[in-house]
Design a protein around this nucleic acid. Structure first.
Length: 571
DNA sequence: GCCGTTTTCGGCCCGACTGTTTTCAGTCG
């Protein structure tokens, strides 16, 4: 676990305990700092090494107090106050906060009045009907708690964007056909295109909210109805994903969309601006002394607050509001800007389709060019090609080139071996239009070894793209350890693009690293790593990730026309 | 504990829904 995450988790934990003790404001301060730490692109230890406590205080939400605690932890490996605070409440009690429906107040009541100290004890007490006599609890609360326990047992995990988005679009589409509905649109982290989604939020504009609530809570895929109100309902879908629907009037469409898109931190910052300008901002609109000013579109709300429209993917309160105030928002790459996919597999290695099928599908998408990158010989498991098959493969690519209307670039996904050499000799690499290099082995190497291995590979003059740079698989495999900044600087120096892999469980580089890479002057390549024609549509997720990393067309080599791309590939 | 084109002190986003309530606290997003 990285130090950033470790410290963030301590802060989250302290926030929970402080909240249980009824401490005001500190919990939100700790959480704010924790969220900032989690999404930092650089390791705190490096920030501290370079700029000391002062640099730590540049992290949003970190002031003198928390910077001191971080310093203490980095220097001594412990945080005294953390140990003191956390000792005040048994670990099991803290864990009870994870049960949906239980917050700090109720958890404390259970602990103090009934001496319940763990999730297990909680379950036994609820089943025995012991909770109902507690002040503020009743029979319903017991049922709620049992249901909440059920949810955490099944692990209400976050879902990949690539899984949630099609489900959300399908539900929104059906809701939009309900009587009286004008618009139904996914909001929340889905609209911000976060890599994983906690729940599916859908905003509906209708004058007949009751019909929407009925339709929504009775959809066939609804497993449990958590709450059903006149304008807002929450259900659990059969996949275990939570979904919320909220119905509003058209004159609130913009403000509601803004509000439900978040992020929370972005909204808070926006409301603070509203307050300073004498407004009040809520999902119903922008108000001045209780009278409606505007709310039909997001654009007019931002405008009234003196800001240009901020694309949803940027709304994380990671500097986008300040950039908007200075009119320095990036001109984000659009979803249709990609001119070709540079990382695709076929039956020559571990793909499901032929070269011709893949090229044809790419042509249908309107691409100008496409590059094939089947695996090199060391990838036995993926049917990697030895030199003899590589030459046959290149011949077939020539054949297919004559059959399709787009440019077919000849490439290969070549393993970066443990010693940093590439899996084919230069004699073969020079026959390729582009070389995609990736690490597929020894993920547990030390930071130093892995960094050295990658930098060594970058010395090869034929390498063009460093694929899925961190090696992570969301929810399944941690990224390997390497010095990202060093690698990015070397990539820039040598004209190598870092890949923003679009595969739903990779999304690698991730958003903060795309942004860092671009800041350092690196180029990005947004590719799908497709193993079948159906995968080509994943490009949307890669572009989303790049947008979240503030990428513009100038940063993305495969958003360039062929000529310009070819010049880049010739290093 | 953080933070400052109203402030180094005194604020800190805003509203829906639920359950146990005779008017609201707790939780959630």
């Amino acid at each position: 676990m990285s130090k950033n995450r470790e410290i963030a988790e301590m802060f989250f934990e302290m926030a929970d305990v402080l909240e249980m003790q009824g401490v005001d404001w500190k919990p939100s301060a700790y959480r704010k700092a924790a969220r900032a730490l989690e999404t930092l692109s650089e390791p705190v230890e490096e920030i501290f090494a370079v700029g000391g406590v002062k640099a730590l205080m540049d992290i949003p939400g970190v002031g003198q107090g928390l910077a001191g605690k971080i310093e203490e932890f980095l220097k001594t490996g412990r945080m005294k106050e953390f140990l003191q605070v956390v000792r005040k409440v048994p670990a099991g009690v803290e864990e009870m906060m994870r049960v949906p429906g239980l917050g700090p107040k109720k958890v404390m009541r259970l602990y103090k009045d009934l001496k319940i100290k763990s999730v297990e004890q909680l379950e036994r007490a609820a089943k025995a009907g012991k909770l109902r006599r507690l002040a503020g609890f009743g029979i319903k609360s017991e049922e709620d708690i049992l249901r909440g326990l059920d949810i955490i047992k099944k692990g209400a995990e976050r879902v990949l964007l690539g899984v949630a988005l099609p489900v959300a679009r399908e539900i929104a589409e059906r809701l939009s056909r309900v009587d009286g509905v004008k618009v139904a649109e996914p909001a929340g982290s889905l609209r911000r295109m976060s890599e994983t989604i906690g729940d599916i939020d859908i905003l509906v504009i209708s004058k007949k909210p009751a019909k929407v609530m009925d339709f929504f809570t009775k959809m066939p895929e609804v497993k449990t109805v958590i709450a059903k109100g006149p304008t807002k309902s929450t259900v659990i879908l059969s996949e275990g994903v939570q979904s919320d629907v909220r119905v509003l009037d058209g004159k609130s469409f913009g403000s509601a969309l803004q509000y439900f898109t978040g992020s929370k931190d972005h909204n808070i910052a926006l409301r603070q601006i509203a307050i300073k300008k004498g407004f009040k901002l809520s999902e119903y609109g922008l108000f001045k002394k209780d009278s409606y000013v505007c709310g039909r579109s997001e654009k007019e709300i931002y405008a009234r607050l003196g800001l240009p429209f901020i694309p949803p993917e940027l709304r994380e309160n990671h500097g986008e509001i300040e950039a908007a105030q200075k009119n320095k928002l990036p001109d984000l790459i659009s979803y249709d800007a990609i001119k070709g996919d540079l990382h695709m597999h076929t039956r020559w290695s571990d793909g499901n389709n032929s070269v011709e099928q893949m090229a044809g599908a790419a042509e249908k998408l309107g691409y100008e060019y496409v590059a094939f990158a089947d695996h090199s010989k060391s990838e036995h498991i993926a049917n990697g090609m030895d030199e003899k098959r590589l030459l046959q493969y290149l011949k077939e690519l020539d054949v297919v080139q004559k059959k399709v209307g787009i440019r077919v670039l000849k490439g290969s996904e070549v393993d970066i071996l443990a010693d940093g050499s590439l899996d084919y000799s230069n004699e073969y690499l020079k026959e390729l239009d582009l070389v995609v290099g990736s690490v597929h082995s020894r993920f547990k190497s030390s930071r130093q070894e892995m960094t050295g291995r990658i930098l060594k590979a970058f010395e090869n003059p034929y390498l063009n793209i460093f694929a899925h740079p961190s090696g992570r698989l969301i929810g399944r495999r941690e990224p390997y350890d390497f010095d990202f900044e060093k690698v990015a600087l070397a990539a820039k120096e040598r004209g190598i693009a870092l890949e923003c892999n679009s595969y739903p469980d990779r999304l690698d580089l991730k958003d903060v690293h795309v942004r860092k890479a671009i800041e350092l002057g690196c180029k990005i390549s947004i590719d799908t790593d497709s193993h079948s024609v159906e995968h080509l549509r994943f490009i949307e997720f890669g572009v989303a990730q790049a947008r979240r990393g503030w990428a513009e067309v100038k940063d993305v080599i495969n958003a360039w026309p062929l000529k310009k791309l070819e010049k880049f590939l010739r290093r």
